[in-house]
């Protein structure tokens, strides 16, 4: 374990209630490419964080809420790898 960075993955997605024009454009492009059955696409962000030691859970939640996502329009999930 020593010297191996700890990885935390954060996925940030637009909320369902928020129109995602990027997702709509990608969906339309997929249809144009012959993927007829595609219903919807939503485009989010994937952030890969590396730590020397695993951070405090509360601190991690705080930065996800305050910086990495905007709770008005986005939701995040944290995955500790």
């Amino acid at each position: 374990m020593l010297g191996v960075p700890m990885k935390v993955d954060v996925v940030v997605m637009p909320k369902q209630s928020v129109l995602d024009p990027q997702g709509v454009a990608v969906r339309n492009a997929l249809k144009d490419l012959g993927l007829d059955s595609v219903e919807s696409v939503r485009v989010g962000k994937f952030l890969e964080l590396e730590f020397k030691t695993l951070p405090d859970e509360a601190k991690l939640q705080e930065v996800c809420r305050d910086l990495l996502s905007n709770p008005v329009i986005e939701e995040y999930t944290i995955r500790i790898a």
Binding site: V18, L19, P21, Q22, A25, N70, V72, I73
Partner: peptide, 16 residues
Amino acid sequence: CEAGLLPGALIRNQSL
């Protein structure tokens, strides 16, 4: 908006 001094957010233009 990001600072929380105003409500809401500015997102990508609908036209992209």
